[in-house]
């Protein structure tokens, strides 16, 4: 569960978030949509405790991001846009490094890594990450972020720049996480991905939540034939 209430954040004169509130339920994929500079990445950075908000509150799995950041991080797996792997370590070593940091016993980590490798069709874990294509790296990145089996998953543009097979693998992974009862927050620009994966959507613009609902609700309310059209109408209002 993610509960955000009145979150505000400024960088100097720029007000990135102007009091946003939203909720993400377990066993559901919640989409966070918005144009560039809307405040999506800032929200995700606050939820993953990289940034601190000026006001408002955010709770992940019941833990407050300001008061219990260590517990928040133990409860969340984060895949950030542009997050890379350690190029001189193998895929396995990248994953097991994060398992060590999350204090996961080695045997448990190995077992979980094998399971996730099968799910994402990864058979190159023994190779150094520097030799991976973008899609290969992103799949290992997903495994790395959930190696400690967190109840909450935050994904920022997880399929950006990936080829079709990798995109399908990532979507399968998200579906699997949802099926396992995890809370999934997905930030993306790809509307077809939202329609395929998201159960509920929040549209953010200029640091404010400007619309929310299921993809079908949003289309109906804006009298749009597809989500892209609905998104454009909401953002231009």
């Amino acid at each position: 569960m993610i509960e955000v209430e009145g979150l505000q954040k400024s960088f100097g004169q720029v007000q990135a978030l102007r009091g946003i509130s939203f909720r993400c339920e377990p066993g559901r994929v919640t989409g966070l949509l918005g144009p560039n500079g809307a405040g999506k990445t800032t929200t995700i950075r606050i939820l993953s405790t990289i940034l601190k908000p000026q006001s408002g509150s955010a709770k992940l799995n019941g833990y407050d991001v300001m008061k219990e950041p260590d517990k928040v991080r133990a409860s969340v797996g984060v895949v950030l846009e542009n997050s890379g792997l350690y190029r001189r370590l193998t895929g396995d070593e990248n994953v097991l490094y994060f398992a060590d940091l999350a204090n996961v016993p080695r045997a448990e980590a190995m077992e979980r890594m094998e399971f996730l490798y099968k799910l994402l069709e990864i058979d190159y874990g023994k190779r150094q990450a520097g030799t991976y294509s973008k899609g290969m790296a992103q799949k290992v990145n997903l495994v790395r972020s959930v190696i400690h089996d967190p109840p909450v998953l935050i994904l920022d543009e997880p399929t950006a720049g990936l080829d079709v097979p990798s995109t399908v693998a990532v979507r399968t992974f998200v579906e699997q996480q949802k099926g396992a009862g995890k809370t999934v927050l997905l930030s993306t620009h790809l509307m077809n991905e939202v329609e395929l994966l998201c159960d509920y959507v929040y549209i953010i613009n200029l640091g404010l939540i400007v619309a929310e609902g299921t993809p079908d609700d949003l289309k109906e309310r804006t009298q749009s034939s597809n989500l892209e059209e609905a998104f454009m109408k909401v953002v231009k209002e």
């Binding site: 405790t49 950030l80 890379g84 190029r87 940091l101 999350a102 972020s145 400690h148």
Partner: peptide, 14 residues
Amino acid sequence: ERGTLESLLTTPVS
């Protein structure tokens, strides 16, 4: 530069 720092900061370690 490689984008690994932010991922590292999201791990449970302080």
